[in-house]
Design a protein around this nucleic acid. Structure first.
Length: 556
DNA sequence: CGAATTTGACCGGCGC
DNA sequence: GCGCCGGTCAAATTCG
């Protein structure tokens, strides 16, 4: 067998190059037999001219690859490395009778296949880049998991803490739970998060319950939640219900924790009142958010020819969550869904996304209300609430009777009508954010994702003095999307689906749930002309069968 | 027939 | 106090 060629790979991209075969067969020019071209050694170390392995301190890294003849690898001095620092690894090598012939043939091969090699080189580079991005993606996922875990643990802890403040002594073993929960909370989180986010309602409580059950070694399922604890242990939600009842009737008596209680009561009330409105362009009568809803009313709202439908969550008996569905008066292809309250039950994966979004948005409001005193706030709440790279406009407004966060996902810049509804000054974020003025920011980074902005209205924030500090820097980045370190980026996987799917919530829920369970997005059912008759919606809203009747609400 | 929806009535907050 | 309006209730109706 003629001497083959050895390949020394000098690269730090080992993940890719390690896939190279160690031996490759090439036809021999003189014998017609297949000649074995041996990759004598895939050299994962950088080497100097004497083939001595270099350490990191001895020289810069290089991605170049060199081809070495086998005899060179075996100790020869004819190192081709300087002549071909960036040789393609396609290895169109042929064996020949003489060394010069081999070199000539190789040279001709190089020139004739130049384009091919260039393409292969680009391919190799792209594969390298792909590898790198995959690794980065994996790291981001790990980060997401860690942050999510910390977030859940934190909410659990704060819920526990509030309950402990409400019931300093619990004699039925729940203290063990609390202690364990506290021990599970990283210390650094305890000092960072405002009380409001921990009081953030039942979505967090649901997560907390699950976490608590994990800690206690008894997984919590929906049936157990509905039926309550079967042993002597304290159901967390039961504790909360007791706490809420106490807030209504006995809170003033608890002098030692009165401040906390009053604050909790105010927060609970705010949580009940604060709303998250989602504007999505959808022909479906109701966006699917993974929850089950029952319609309990329909009214004609002033200034809108389309009726407003009222739904309440039916996934639990006393779930306080309600939502209103109404088509936009100006553009009836836009569906406005307003959520209020927080679920008091575990949510299916498909519902977690929207519930988390709305809850985070509300928490963000509350965080803003809490942050004005100390200037410390949770910078990621709004980012959590708003898919970061989506073509959305997030409007924080207190001009309505209740503080409302509006997520505009209609893939439009603020319309003139919207701007009219936001009569306050719209200033560039660079000045407005620092001056505490309402702000409007646009971002332009992703090609098919248009804009995300925040219009920020604090003119009439009764009881919710939103500090400009509370607006997430992740959102208020001057140039739009922020580095991947921001938790908001973890939701960015949903944004592509959001922008391509007119049914935002279905896309959002599906995309985020895909992270959890790997499901595909679902689509909505057929269109309904105007307003809130949900009966033609898809099965994701199992409680809203189709009747096909026209809306015939007569008002009152 | 039970569940869900429809829709007129009712209630409470708010402004005048 | 009155009217307006948003929100909810609950009886009637419809649906599966």
């Amino acid at each position: 067998m003629d001497k083959g060629w050895g390949l020394a790979i000098d690269s730090d991209s080992l993940g890719f190059f390690s896939t190279f075969p160690k031996e490759r067969m090439f036809p021999s020019a003189d014998t017609g037999e297949a000649a074995r071209v041996t990759v004598a050694e895939v050299d994962f170390f950088r080497r100097d001219v004497n083939d001595r392995k270099l350490t990191d301190k001895e020289g810069p890294r290089s991605r170049s690859m060199v081809i070495k003849k086998e005899d060179d690898l075996n100790g020869g001095s004819d190192d081709l490395r300087p002549a071909c620092p960036d040789v393609n690894t396609g290895l169109h090598l042929e064996t020949a009778n003489s060394r010069s012939d081999r070199l000539t043939v190789a040279s001709e091969s190089f020139s004739s296949d130049l384009e091919d090699k260039r393409a292969q080189r680009e391919l190799a580079q792209m594969q390298i880049e792909l590898r790198r991005m995959n690794l980065e993606n994996q790291k981001l996922r790990e980060t997401l998991g860690q942050v999510s875990s910390s977030y859940s643990t934190l909410q659990m802890h704060m819920t526990m803490l509030l309950q402990r403040q409400q019931f300093p002594r619990q004699s039925d073993g729940s203290e063990d739970l609390q202690d364990r929960a506290e021990k599970a909370v990283p210390r650094q989180f305890l000092d960072l998060v405002p009380v409001s986010s921990a009081q953030g309602g039942d979505i967090s409580n649901s997560m907390s319950e699950e976490r608590t059950q994990e800690l206690s070694g008894s997984p919590l399922n929906a049936a157990e939640v509905e039926s309550g604890p079967k042993d002597g242990s304290v159901d967390v939600r039961e504790s909360k219900r007791i706490r809420l009842e106490t807030l209504d009737s006995e809170a003033p008596k608890l002098d030692s924790s009165r401040g906390v209680v009053d604050r909790a009561a105010a927060t609970e009330a705010t949580m009940r009142k604060a709303r998250v409105s989602v504007r999505a362009r959808s022909e479906a009568p109701m966006i699917s958010d993974g929850c089950q809803w029952r319609k309990y009313g329909q009214k004609m709202a002033k200034g809108n020819p389309c009726p407003r439908a009222y739904y309440r969550c039916t996934m639990a008996v006393n779930c306080p969550v309600r939502k209103q569905v109404q088509r936009c008066a100006e553009d009836r292809s836009i569906l406005i869904t307003t959520y209020e309250g927080n679920h008091n039950h575990p949510l299916p994966p498909a519902a977690i996304a929207m519930a988390s979004t709305t809850s985070s948005a509300v928490n963000m409001l509350l965080s803003g209300s809490m942050s004005s005193s100390d200037g410390v706030t949770n910078p990621n709440l709004l980012a959590r609430a708003i898919p970061p790279f989506s073509s959305s406009i997030a409007t924080i407004s207190a001009s309505a009777p209740f503080p409302t966060v509006t997520l505009d996902l209609t893939q439009q810049a603020p319309s003139p009508l919207q701007m009219q509804r936001q009569p306050q000054h719209q200033l560039p974020v660079s000045s407005a954010a620092t001056a505490g003025h309402p702000t409007s920011i646009s971002t332009h980074d992703l090609p098919h994702i248009l804009r995300q902005g925040v219009m920020y209205n604090q003119s009439k924030f009764s009881g919710l003095q939103m500090s400009h500090d509370s607006v997430s820097p992740c959102v208020l980045g001057k140039n739009g999307p922020q580095p991947p370190s921001c938790f908001a980026d973890t939701v960015s996987a949903a944004t592509a689906a959001i922008t391509s799917d007119p049914n935002f919530t279905a896309a959002l829920a599906a995309a985020i749930s895909s992270i959890i369970s790997g499901k595909d997005p679902a689509n909505n059912g057929p269109a309904n002309s105007c307003g809130a008759n949900p009966k033609s919606s898809n099965s994701n809203n199992s409680s809203v069968p189709s009747s096909g009747k026209a809306n015939s609400f007569s008002g009152h």
